[in-house]
Structure formats: structure tokens, C-alpha cells
Design a protein around this nucleic acid. Structure first.
Lengths: 211, 211
DNA sequence: AGCGCCCAACATGTATACAGGTATACACCA
DNA sequence: TGGTGTATACCTGTATACATGTTGGGCGCT
């Protein structure tokens, strides 16, 4: 039970919506639960704070972050900026073998769609493309933003409904990549992300109970 | 001596080049130096790790990050992407009063130029513009990337020489803002950052002694 | 009855002590 | 002489104990 292990478990629960936005993360409770002292728990919370998933207030403990609609909008704008740039840089590096690999990942994510692992499959598809740009820091930043969004996607359990449309978006992006048309691929990706942003924001502003 | 205070001091020393890239940050040494136990030191190091300024390896302690030229190139590309976007979003929100304030900050940074506070003055100018876009997370990301660069700028103490040209760049950007010409302002900013990137990379690849 | 203060219970922050891992230096062997 | 194994010293990781700060409730006052 290292801090990294604990952080990974908490991250999973945050992303799965088990720990809701704003939830208190008591050191003593977590220490009992994981069967360790509070020290590794503190380390784990610091790790998550560094990733932006929890907020630590001095003498007042940690809690899962809670975002306003405005912050969600900003995060999706940042994702559009960073992901489109990453895609644009990836296009020239794509080989036929890469295309086959991306198609393979896409098919696999089709199968996961609707299930609890849909988010991993979706990310696997995007990552398969992005990593061809060879921008490790940019990829890490995208992943961090993505995780932050996922916190709220799960909390509002809004995504399964829109699944088919997303899978179509993926098909469309891949099609443009096959044609080597970077700008149309970027446009397709932008629409893909913009759609997700609008959908989540609608859900958030619709049910005001938690924000 | 809270973890935040300690982290701030270490951050200052990292940015000032007192702690060189790759330098070992021993918990016991820091604990003695700050007159506290290792626990708050660990917290401080975790904070800095979250900001990407130090790297923590399990059972092997923390050290100041060390970047390859390729990573520096990527970071500057990210800065160009994020800062230009921020500037573009800020332009429509600029009022005459804002322009006067930016000019005031610019003049102040002129005076600091060459001294040890030049980095703060430079950042104050950029921030005065960026904050008008009202993108707190984006601004935080830019600041984090900027800090990472600064680590190496200080380590290679390469910037004072180029100072006058940068001040001209600032003048040029402000001039375009006065004309309300977003695209030319963005171009000027892009050239400004690109120049800084090239200059730092030249110094890094030139003196291979430390990397 | 409403408001404010005080105290007690609890949570977090920090120090000390101990356990476990890593690295270096030295001795031994090929 | 070079390489390897081991032992030792140092450093980090964790648990326990104590200090400090926060919060909620009860009591007294207005």
C-alpha cells in the first residue's frame, strides 16, 4: 500500500463517480480504510492535489474538487486547444501501420462502449493518435484535463446516452486521417469535444442540486 | 515554517538558479536547514513535484528537474500555444484603462530589467494582459510552464544579454493592442517567445557541461 | 427566544522513533 | 587488474505520539 497505489485507487473512485465532487477526504478515515497510518495518506492526497483532482486547505483537510460551469467551459476550451494541436502535429507522422493500429483500438473501444470501461476505451483511441505527435508533456496535460472532466462526467452520469454519436465522431476522425486531411480531422475532433462540452454543461446547469 | 513557506523558498531558489537542475534535495539536509522535521519537508517537496519543478523517485528522494533540449522545445511550443490563445481572448476585453495599466506595468518592468527582479517584471507585463481574458486555469498552466523554463534560464544565466530586444518586443505587443489588432499582437508575442526559446536552446546545446 | 461565548471532541500538522531500501566502499575471487 | 559480492552507513518510508487548529453543541446572557 504505497502512496502511489492509494492515489491510484482514489483516482479510480473519483473518476468512477464513487467519490462525488466536493466530497470530504478525511485522513483518518482513509488511513483506517487502507490499513496504514496517515502519512502515506497525506502523500497520496498531495499527489492527487498535484493532478488537480483534490483541493487541500491547510488545517481543513482535502476534498474532491468541485467545478463551476465556467471552469468546465474553460477546461474544455483548453482541451480543444491542446488536443487539436496534438492531432495536427500527429498527422504528418501517421503511417499505414499506425492507421491499422488506430482502427484496432477504435474497434476495441466500440465493444467497451456503454460498459464501465467506456472511458478507458475512448481515451485509448485518442491517445493512439496523439502519441504519434511525440509530445509527452502535452499528452500528460491533456490527460490531466481529461481526468478532471471525467470527474464530472461520472458524477452526472450523462455520457452513455450520447455514446453512438461519439463512436461516429471517432469513425469520422479516422476517415480524415486515412485521407491525410489534417484540417478536416482537426475540425472533426473540435466538433467531437465541443459536443461533449455542451452535453456536460447542459447536464450540470440542468440539475443544479450539486455544483 | 509551513510546507507552503518552505516550498515557496525552494521555488525561489530553483528559479534563481541557486539550486541547479538535477540537484539532489535531501530531506534531512532541508529539515536541518529549515529547523523542522522531515514531514513538512516531504509535503513541500510534494507541492513542488505537483508543480513539476522537482521529480520524486520512491526510496531515492527528490531532485530538481532536468530537461533535455527536446523537452524545452516542447514546453516553449506549449507556451506559444497557450499564451497566444490567451492573448487573442484578452484583446476584445481591453479597455483604455487597461491599456494605461499595462503601460504602467511595462514601464516598471523596464526599470527592473537587468536586475535580479527582471523575471518578475517580465511576467507582470504578460500577466497584466493575459488576466483580461479571465482564464484562471489557463493562466495557472502558463505560469507553471513559465516557471519550468525559468529554472533553466537562470541556470544558464543567458537572458540579461537579450534584454533590450525583449523590451522592444513588449513595446511592439502593446502598440498592436492599442490599435486593437489581435492577430498582429499574437504574431508579435509568438516571435517574442520563439526568440526566447531559440536563445535558451542555443545556450543549452552550446554548453553541454550541465544538462 | 435569539444571540454569543466557551468548551470539548475531533481532525489536521508535526516531531520522534523505527523499519526498509539504496548506494558506496572494501574485500575477495577470477 | 577488473569484476562481483557483501557489509555498512545513509537516506527515505512509515508508525506512533503529541501539539495545534477547527468545528459543533451546550450553556448563559440579553
Amino acid at each position: 500500500m504505497t502512496p502511489e497505489t492509494i492515489a491510484a485507487e482514489l483516482r479510480r473512485e473519483l473518476q468512477a463517480g464513487i467519490l462525488r465532487p466536493g466530497a470530504d477526504l478525511s485522513q483518518v478515515q482513509l488511513a483506517e480504510r487502507f490499513g496504514v497510518s496517515r502519512i502515506p495518506i497525506r502523500d497520496a492526497l498531495r499527489i492527487l492535489a498535484g493532478e488537480g483532482l483534490v483541493a487541500i486547505e491547510v488545517n481543513r483537510g482535502a476534498r474532491a474538487i468541485s467545478l463551476t460551469p465556467g471552469e468546465v467551459r474553460e477546461i474544455y476550451d483548453l482541451r480543444i486547444l491542446l488536443e487539436c494541436d496534438c492531432l495536427r502535429r500527429a498527422v504528418p507522422a501517421i503511417s499505414p501501420a499506425n492507421l491499422r493500429e488506430i482502427e484496432r483500438v477504435r474497434l476495441k473501444s466500440d465493444l467497451d462502449a456503454g460498459g464501465p470501461g467506456w472511458a478507458e476505451g475512448d481515451w485509448a483511441f485518442h491517445r493512439a493518435i496523439y502519441q504519434l505527435a511525440v509530445r509527452p508533456r502535452q499528452l500528460a496535460m491533456i490527460e490531466a484535463l481529461r481526468r478532471t472532466c471525467l470527474l464530472f462526467v461520472s458524477a452526472y452520469s450523462s455520457m452513455p446516452a450520447k455514446k453512438p454519436r461519439w463512436l461516429d465522431d471517432h469513425r469520422m476522425i479516422l476517415q480524415q486521417l486515412r485521407r491525410g486531411d489534417a484540417e478536416h480531422a482537426v475540425l472533426a475532433l473540435q466538433r467531437h469535444l465541443e459536443g461533449a462540452a455542451r452535453h456536460l454543461l447542459q447536464r450540470m446547469t440542468g440539475s443544479r442540486s450539486k455544483s
